[in-house]
Simulated scan of single mutants.
Amino acid sequence: MKYSWILVVVLLSACGSNPSKPSGHLYQENDSQNIPADSKEMLNVRMGVAYFERGDYDTALEKLKRALSYNSKLAIAHSAIATVYATLNAQLDAERHYKLSVKYGPKDPTILNNYGTYLCQKGEYELALSYYEKTLANPFYKTPETVHENMGVCLVQSNQHSKAEPHFRKALQYNSKLPVSLYNMVVVSSAKGDYMKARAFLQRLQNVAALDERILKIGYEVETEMGNKRAANRYLGMIKQIKRN
């Protein structure tokens, strides 16, 4: 299941990103090293981010490399270029730049969150969680809900479902319309046999995102267990429609 590219860039969209993957901010202005927004390096970071959004990875790399030529210790530029390299599956380059981003921005919450996301996607769950915890330790981070959601997803991926649920709930306390957290709460509640809560979270999810086949099947099972045949058949019809398409 994904935050404007000038101010904030997200790797996964609220209504289109994968609920099984954590999300990260590629760039969040004013988080990094107090570099003037109109400096040559930050202007090139912005341009690199914009080209990344358009899918023009070659030009994105060119702009981000230029930013680093102006300031080789600019943490956010290292984090951004690492994200581009990771997208291109150039893992050695991605790893090198992520480590440099943390070296030069060790207290920057955006940098820490991005590196945590990368580590989680690599399967280094415990290390990823430690970076998310460092991010949350900064009381001025602008989107703690994203970090709680990331932690929840990472814990689900590492089969620590009971520990994941409180983070999804915390994320939803900050923002009640987060699709990834709502999606996962449907899954968690259904797995626990708490069908009333699963139904409630599913209804909230339907208001903010399209439902995929997996979640529709859960909806069908929930309504079947609750004896609501009409609602169950509605979900069944939606599943068949997806299969036809």
Rank of each mutant, 00 (worst) to 15 (best):
H97Q: 09
N207F: 00
Y3H: 07
K40C: 02
L92H: 06
E149C: 10
L7E: 12
S39Q: 02
E221F: 03
D31G: 02
C15G: 09
A14F: 14
E29N: 11
R244T: 00
K243W: 04
L172K: 04
P22R: 03
A82G: 03
A137I: 06
V84Q: 01
L68G: 12
A164F: 13
V102F: 11
T59R: 13
H148N: 12
L155F: 04
S101G: 14
A37I: 15
I215E: 05
G16E: 07
E223N: 11
D31W: 15
N207A: 12
S69R: 00
L64F: 00
Y183L: 03
D212K: 01
L26A: 14
G152V: 05
G123A: 11
A137R: 07
E41H: 06
S189Y: 06
M47T: 03
K217H: 11
Y235D: 07
V147L: 02
K73G: 00
I218E: 07
G24W: 13
L61S: 02
Y51L: 15
P139M: 04
L64W: 00
Y141P: 02
Q173W: 04
H161W: 06
S189G: 06
L92W: 10
K99V: 15
V84T: 02
N30Q: 13
T135R: 03
P19D: 09
T143P: 00
H148I: 00
D31I: 04
E133S: 11
A75P: 11
A200C: 01
R46P: 01
C15D: 10
A50D: 13
N114T: 06
L211K: 01
Q28V: 00
K73V: 00
H148Q: 01
Y85C: 04
F201G: 01
L12W: 11
N113T: 07
M238G: 00
Y174W: 14
E133N: 12
K170P: 02
A75R: 09
V180M: 15
Q91W: 12
K21V: 09
Y132D: 02
